[in-house]
């Protein structure tokens, strides 16, 4: 059983002349073909006027995983502009890799759902429902 931190960033496109991004990190234990346990979830929103570059992506991921317990950070190759694994790994302070097994991909899928839905929640003002009518 291995412990990893699966990461995904949503919203890396222009929205009202800004880039509103949400990074989600999920700390989980995995076995060969399945996720055993989810330990912790961190979500962090980021805003930028310019499109994010590799260094920005690395920074966003590092700030989101801060304080989480896990041996290796795992993210999609596309998130780091398809650069080689050794290059991406050298840019992180923690150990980093691209997904290989089904369970690592499942972890990233979980992170993706979390980041996407939290971004939608933050962007949509109608999602803030009042508890009482007078609020």
């Amino acid at each position: 059983m291995e412990r990893i931190i699966a990461v995904d960033i949503s919203g890396r496109h222009r929205h009202n002349s800004r880039y509103l991004m949400v990074c989600a990190a999920v700390s989980l234990s995995i076995a060969g073909g399945h996720v055993k346990q989810i330990h912790d979830v961190n979500i962090k929103p980021f805003v930028s006027d310019t499109p994010p570059e590799v260094v920005d992506v690395v920074q966003m991921i590092e700030r989101t995983v801060e304080g989480m317990v896990g041996v290796t950070i795992v993210a999609e190759k596309g998130d780091l502009f398809n650069q080689s694994e050794w290059l991406s790994n050298s840019m992180f302070t923690a150990s980093f890799k691209y997904p290989e097994s089904l369970s690592e991909r499942m972890g990233i899928e979980i992170a993706h759902h979390i980041s996407l839905s939290s971004r939608n929640l933050l962007l949509d003002s109608r999602s803030w429902e009042p508890i009482k009518d007078n609020l």
Partner: peptide, 8 residues
């Protein structure tokens, strides 16, 4: 290879 081999 354990992490890549489910039900080995």
């Amino acid at each position: 290879i354990a992490y890549l081999a489910p039900n080995p």
